[in-house]
Amino acid sequence: MSANADHSPIDAVVQRLTERFPSVPPDRVAAIVDEELHRFDGAKVTEFVPVLVEHEAHEVLRREATPVPLSEQSATAIVAGHAVEPDLDPLEVERRTEQTGLLLGELDN
């Protein structure tokens, strides 16, 4: 993989965490993400490294600052407990909120 391809998801992680923790300077967020990224140097499976880095960096940042609530951070709406993208068709929103069944978490008989 090229260096650009390797860092694109990590750049997105830095961006998301910078938005979530606006009281932390962006340079500090980038340093924390970089530190967590280097913990995975030499990993044989790198597919999930950005997710793991984001999780660990988020935990470090939570110890340093209070995150902005997601409702203020994102334009994503919550409908009946489901995240809904702003440009979704209203029928798709309705379909997603009406899904039930064992595979979707319903355990009642």
Rank of each mutant, 00 (worst) to 15 (best):
I10T: 02
I78S: 10
E72Y: 09
V33E: 02
D11M: 10
A12D: 06
S2F: 05
I10K: 11
H55M: 09
L103T: 05
R20D: 01
N4E: 15
V51C: 04
N4T: 14
S2G: 02
N109Q: 15
V33M: 00
S8V: 12
L91D: 11
L103C: 01
R63M: 02
A12G: 07
E56A: 06
L103F: 13
E54D: 01
E64R: 13
D27K: 14
P25M: 08
H58F: 12
L88W: 08
L104Y: 08
E98S: 12
L17D: 03
D108G: 06
A57W: 01
A43E: 00
V68F: 05
P86C: 00
P26G: 07
D34C: 04
H55T: 13
D11K: 14
A3P: 07
A75V: 09
D6F: 13
E72W: 02
A57G: 06
E56R: 04
A3K: 11
P50T: 04
M1G: 11
V53I: 03
F21P: 04
N109Y: 15
T76I: 14
A12P: 11
P50N: 05
A12C: 11
R39G: 04
P9G: 03
H82Q: 15
V13D: 06
V79R: 05
R28E: 03
L102F: 13
T100Y: 13
A65Y: 08
P25F: 10
L103W: 12
E64M: 13
A30G: 09
P26L: 03
F48C: 11
E72F: 06
P50I: 06
D6A: 14
S71M: 10
V45I: 14
T100K: 11
S23C: 08
E54H: 04
V29S: 05
G101F: 02
E59L: 09
V60A: 06
H58E: 15
E85Y: 14
V51F: 05
A57F: 05
P69D: 07
G81V: 10
P26R: 07
P69T: 00
E72K: 13
E35A: 11
P67V: 07
A75W: 08
E35K: 06
D34K: 09
A83H: 12
N109D: 15
V84D: 07
E94D: 14
A83S: 15
L102P: 12
R28H: 10
P90T: 03
